[in-house]
Amino acid sequence: MSEKILDIKDLSIRYVTEEETVLAVNGISFSLDKGESIGLVGETGAGKTTTALGIMGLVPDPPGEITSGTIEFEGENLLEYPEKKMREIRGGKISMIFQDPMTSLNPVMPVGDQIREVVLLHNNVSKAEARSRAEEMLEQVGIPKERYDDYPHQFSGGMKQRVIIAIALACSPELLIADEPTTALDVTIQAQVLQLMKALRTQYQTSMILITHDLGVVAKICNKVAVVYAGQIIESGTLKDIYTNKQHPYTIGLFNSLPDIEHETSELKVIKGLVPDPSNLPKGCKFNPRCPYCTPECCENEVEMTALSDTHSVRCIHVGEFDREA
């Protein structure tokens, strides 16, 4: 069962401009087994999307540069691949769903052809075969194949996102990276899309990286979670570890700041302050300016990950010392 498909070690990515150096990703490590699905959770600017672009080999260079780390996919380091080989991988073995379904489709090309294009590119098939594969994919995501020749503007937001899912899955990828796949959608449509993604994952054993800020969406379709803050993973574990035994003050704060739909609360508990500026990160623990349990030690040295169990790790020197319910 546990066949490792992706293994990222100590990945760091920065953007260098004339004015400043933005440290977007600072030593991220995680791995993923076949059929597993990990949720990368964090707020705007945490470095989630840059991590995904790193895996896809799409970090714009310049200004972006990968300063350290390895990304092993099926045992080979993607960072050593030449561009030509990466092109074969992208859309084939690894594909990505971008956040905005409105802008990631070509407006002057029928949607069916956009799916067929990927099939033709990665498989040695005839145009007719590729078309029937594209039609099959449309049906699979719940769009009648009669709409093959329609253009993106003739579809609603939810349907466009399904077309994008169809494109991403057309070559049966080993790894699917979904960057906020449902953020632009309404709740009832989001429910449809999540159900679809979950079904496809079980059917094809596709591994998945889900990038989101929505802890509810993660609970629905992931089995592992990594909480990202200022370009670092500050807590990681199984869904159960994170949702029932969260340890990092940021993770706790994040859950507390959600309005609870099941209970009545008067005031939301907030995390004070703002996400730090990635061009000017604080010394020591990156969360220290906002942390209610911060001590002088937290502001001195870099904090390492501490393993609490085989699956659960946290980046905090005071773990277990404070009252988590407070």
């Binding site: 429910a191 449809q192 509810g216 609970a219 629905k220 949702y243 959600l258």
Partner: peptide, 17 residues
Amino acid sequence: SAIPVPKYNAPDNQIIL
């Protein structure tokens, strides 16, 4: 029912329209 609940093992009683 469509709101994803941020809880472990939340009951899956969604009504999918």
